[in-house]
């Protein structure tokens, strides 16, 4: 049912954009899953998108709008890069990579906690705090790339000096995608499912999200739980940032987060905040992103069409949800 709506919807947008509907659909499919190398490319987008979406589930459960995922991804990338630069000639590259993972997750978590503290202590709305910190993080990356971490000789937008190959997570030639990255993402999915469904923490997050006053009377501490949610979300975003550095780019680049933080918000909303749908919708979005690269090459259409499709799709689904729950069409007089 949903798939049918989605298909009709995308077609409608294509007609509006004056694009040949069938050809575009064909190109999107072949462009995304037409070959193993294309599929591997899609999975490389799927990994950070799924990690960020998992993190967002914690904050949405407790009713927080964690807009700062972008910044948290960047801080994860910065943390990991710092560790890899320090341990560039280490005899134990495995240990350095492990440390990079830990520090990257911590970096993302701390950046998220900063937004959380601004909310719980400073009374700053988490949306503004997150947005502000995103800009700060972007500034920090540019400063590092053009300042202390610039390439010897010429500083450029292409990023820092690449790491030694021993400090990459290995990507087997036939796989074309790092098994470590896939494995860590699956672990994150499983852990999120476990925490949200079967632990007291998950239940408490939902309780506070549903009614903070009642939760306080039940003995829960809403402020502390908000920080937990932010910390967990930030750690997963930080992990995404770390993998961008250690698996995909092997250096720090200005666009390291590739807007996956914002895209993940759309993924989670389209999934109706349900974890079970997240990996599939993240895959669909990743496929759209990768598949649309073919559009300008073959049909002289702009690849930003995929962004239009994603955004409009989410708005439509939100509207359908609102209709189903009877919220749409409410008079604003009551």
């Amino acid at each position: 049912m949903v798939a049918a709506i989605v298909l009709v919807f995308i077609s409608a947008i294509l007609v509006l954009a004056g694009a040949p509907v069938l050809e575009v659909h064909g190109l999107l499919v072949t462009g995304a899953v037409g070959s193993w190398s294309k599929l591997a490319q899609v999975l490389r987008v799927w990994v950070p998108l799924t990690l960020c979406s998992c993190g967002l589930l914690y904050t949405f459960q407790i009713g927080l709008w964690n807009i700062g995922v972008e910044g948290q991804v960047m801080l994860g990338a910065i943390g990991a890069t710092a560790v890899l630069r320090l341990g560039f000639d280490s005899a134990l590259p495995g240990a350095v990579l492990g440390a990079a993972l830990v520090v990257g997750m911590l970096g993302g978590a701390l950046w998220a906690l900063l937004a959380g503290l601004l909310k719980t202590w400073g009374g700053v709305n988490e949306i503004f705090a997150g947005l502000g910190l995103n800009f700060v993080a972007q500034g920090l990356i540019l400063w590092l790339i053009f300042g202390p971490w610039r390439r010897p000789g010429v500083a450029s937008m292409s990023g820092t000096e690449p790491f030694a190959e021993s400090l990459w997570f290995p990507t087997p030639a036939v796989w074309r995608i790092s098994p470590h990255a896939l494995g860590l993402t699956l672990v994150a999915l499983a852990a999120t499912a476990l925490v949200l469904r079967h632990t007291r923490l998950g239940l408490a997050l939902r309780a506070v999200g549903g009614n903070p006053s009642a939760s306080y009377l039940f003995g829960l501490k809403p402020g502390r739980l908000m920080l937990w949610a932010m910390g967990l979300a930030g750690a997963l975003a930080g992990l995404a940032g770390t993998l961008q550095v250690t698996v995909v780019y092997h250096r720090l680049i200005p666009a390291i987060s590739s807007n996956y933080g914002y895209l993940a918000l759309l993924v989670v909303m389209l999934a109706d905040y349900r974890l079970s749908w997240v990996p599939f919708i993240a895959f669909f979005f990743a496929a759209l992103n990768v598949g649309s690269i073919q559009l300008p090459l073959v049909l002289q259409l702009d690849s930003s069409l995929s962004g239009v499709i994603q955004g409009a799709l989410v708005l439509t689904v939100l509207l359908i949800h609102a209709w189903n729950s009877g919220k749409a069409g409410t008079r604003w007089t009551t």
Binding site: R200, L203, A204, R206, A207, N211, S213, A214, L217
Partner: peptide, 17 residues
């Protein structure tokens, strides 16, 4: 408003308390 969490079930309230 203050006593119960409307979206949680009776069993979830029991687990919570």
């Amino acid at each position: 408003d203050e006593g119960l969490v409307g979206s949680l079930t009776i069993a979830e309230h029991c687990a919570l308390t």
